[in-house]
Simulated scan of single mutants.
Amino acid sequence: MTDTLTRKELDDTALARLEHGGRLLNPVFKGFMNTFGRVGFRGELALRFSPRLADEARPPELSCEQFMAVADVGERHLPFFAGWLLSFEHLKNVAEVLGDALSANGKYFLFCDNIDLSTRYQVQYEKAIFYVLPILESTVYNEILELLYLEKNDLKKKDTAGKLDAIADAGIKFDATFDSITYAEGLELMGPVRNPNENRPV
């Protein structure tokens, strides 16, 4: 196993288009998994790019942060991903960017900063169903471990690929049901969008 992938090695996975489009940014991990035939990514998914000035590389205007996903070689669809959004509204952007990499059978988790802390929803958008949850434990990693009943101490012995394998395996088996709402209903229910830069030192 290696934690670096070439574009050629990604070409036969559902992550290929995202990689070629420069959307898989700031990787904590991008490589082959311990599960044979599976690749994984942890980092940032760019949803909307900033205008480019000459050859200057600028950070994206909008991202799904703390993004983690796995893909199987030879398969068109992502079986699992999880990520963080500042606003529920951006679920639409995630669905549009991932596009045909999503399927009705995939397990997709979005932790949103501006939904009520006591709520959990299932939202169908196009063909995919998203599990939408509040962010309580500050990181997607901690949240997904709690949701999937995975013990952090059990994962400490594993390398980064092993941790992501364990999370993805549990996520793919997830079968709980939440209140089902439409995307439009979610827009009505969501709270104000927090300014992520407030209270930061200048």
Rank of each mutant, 00 (worst) to 15 (best):
E126S: 14
Y131A: 01
T119N: 11
D113M: 11
V132W: 00
N105S: 13
D113K: 14
Y108R: 05
Q124F: 04
Y131S: 07
C112L: 08
A128L: 05
Y108D: 03
V123E: 00
N114T: 13
K127T: 15
K107C: 06
V132H: 01
Q122A: 02
S103N: 07
A128K: 05
Y131T: 10
G106K: 06
A128W: 03
E126V: 13
D113F: 12
D113I: 09
S103T: 13
Q122L: 04
S103V: 09
C112M: 10
Q122V: 00
D113E: 15
T119C: 14
C112N: 07
L117I: 14
Q122T: 08
N105Q: 13
P134F: 08
Y108M: 07
I129E: 02
K107L: 02
Q124A: 03
D116S: 15
Y108C: 05
F109D: 02
F111V: 10
G106H: 08
D113V: 12
K107T: 09
Q122S: 06
L117V: 13
K127G: 07
L117G: 14
E137Y: 15
N114C: 09
F111S: 05
F109M: 03
N114F: 08
E137K: 15
P134I: 11
P134T: 11
F109V: 07
S138A: 12
D116C: 11
S118D: 12
N105R: 13
C112H: 05
F111I: 07
Y131E: 02
I115A: 08
F109W: 05
D113Y: 13
Y125L: 12
S138G: 04
Y131F: 09
F111N: 02
D116Y: 12
F109S: 01
A104T: 14
E137V: 11
R120A: 08
S138F: 14
F109L: 01
R120N: 09
Y125V: 12
S103R: 08
D113N: 15
F111W: 08
N105A: 11
K127C: 09
V123P: 05
F130K: 01
K127N: 11
V123S: 01
